[in-house]
Simulated scan of single mutants.
Amino acid sequence: MLIHFLFVFIISLLLTRLIRYYAVARNVLDIPNQRSSHSTPTARGGGLAIVLVFYSACVYLFLTAQISSAWFYSFSATLLVAVIGFCDDHTPIASRWRFLTHLCSAFLALYFFNGLPLLLIPEPFASLLGSSTLIMGWLSYIPLVIALVWILNLFNFMDGTDGIAASEAVFVSAALAAYLLNIDTSLFMVSISLTAAALGFLIWNWPKASIFMGDVGSGFLGLVLGILILLASQQLAVLLYCGLILFGLFIVDASYTLLVRIKTGQKWYSAHCSHTYQRVAKLHGHLTVLKMCWAINLLWLLPISWLVFLHPTAALLGIFIAYLPLFAIAHHFKAGQAASTHEI
């Protein structure tokens, strides 16, 4: 396991550097504008290293019979998102085509591993329904496709400052791997493969970043992490709620910001820099944002997810407790409000 992790990490590290050379040579650069959190042109598209290395690891695990064909085909479906993201990094693609690709990729991934046939019902709803589980079947597909597409896009939204998206991928996948170690060895290997691939890229993306992830990596990572959480919940139902807690930093910031923009009549679908992390980055810099994110993840969200893991019936209470201060932080920094209407 350790050799596998180190090998994936080293290949990701080296490949990210090669992609940076390619991006600079082909002028695939992120040019600063009024919405940017950086001040100098920077290579982008480094997330391609994560895609190639993680998928290669999946191919290896499949060929050595460490993961099932269903799981392999599901992760293969995520390549659709990576491909359209790669194209968009080079030449802008209409949002309708990106959205259609996201829907198709999410549906195919769910189809191959049969969605979420069984859902754990925590208290107090379990008492009201008279059952702690709910059989979903095909009924799970519509909400799960919507959820996966949202996670995919929120990961894209949150990839706006040095190291934040790669750090989140490392944190969530590593935490899931820790839960899965004694539950499912196959999914554990997939999780540590993603951790190693994202960590190799993070070395180059750490403030001050020498390369950005780009759409090729951000959308792919969001979808893969969503699939990992669903697959983990197939092995142990409570891991769905643990995963939602681990992902809380991104879910709350992106969701709160979007809701505020809709409520205040802004063009919510247009590019902006009003997320909580972007506001903090403007005031205190990229490294401070990254330190705060790691502190929240390790000292707040991880312990709560562990308590929920130990006490599954308290899952909804755990999510509420985990998310509440994150909403308070977003409110404090006036996330989502137009720049002309707020003062921090």
Rank of each mutant, 00 (worst) to 15 (best):
L134P: 07
I135P: 04
G137K: 14
S140H: 05
S140E: 14
Y141R: 14
P143R: 13
L144H: 09
A147W: 10
L148S: 15
L148V: 07
L148R: 04
W150L: 06
I151A: 02
L152D: 06
N153R: 08
N153G: 07
L154F: 08
L154M: 11
L154P: 01
F157S: 03
M158D: 02
M158S: 03
D159F: 01
D159V: 00
G160L: 04
T161S: 09
D162K: 13
G163L: 06
I164P: 00
S167Q: 11
E168F: 05
V170Y: 02
V170F: 06
F171M: 06
V172F: 01
A174K: 05
A174M: 12
L176T: 05
A177Q: 05
L180N: 00
L181V: 10
T185F: 15
L187T: 01
L187E: 00
M189Y: 14
V190T: 13
S191M: 02
I192L: 07
S193E: 15
S193C: 11
L194N: 11
A196P: 15
A197G: 06
A197M: 12
A198D: 10
L199V: 07
L199D: 04
G200L: 07
F201Q: 02
F201W: 03
L202R: 09
L202I: 06
I203C: 09
I203V: 14
W204F: 12
W204D: 04
N205K: 12
N205Q: 12
N205I: 08
W206R: 10
P207C: 11
K208P: 13
K208D: 09
A209S: 12
S210Y: 14
S210P: 08
F212G: 05
G217F: 03
G217E: 08
G217K: 03
F220A: 03
L221Q: 10
G226D: 05
G226R: 03
L228N: 00
I229C: 05
L231E: 07
A232I: 02
A232S: 10
Q234F: 11
Q235G: 12
Q235D: 12
L236I: 11
V238E: 06
Y241Q: 00
Y241F: 06
C242R: 04
L244N: 00
F247K: 02
F247G: 00
G248P: 03
F250W: 00
F250E: 00
V252C: 15
D253P: 04
D253Y: 10
A254M: 07
S255F: 12
S255C: 15
T257K: 01
T257D: 01
V260C: 07
K263P: 13
T264R: 13
G265I: 06
K267L: 12
K267T: 11
W268N: 05
S270A: 11
S270Q: 15
S270W: 10
A271L: 14
A271W: 07
H272W: 05
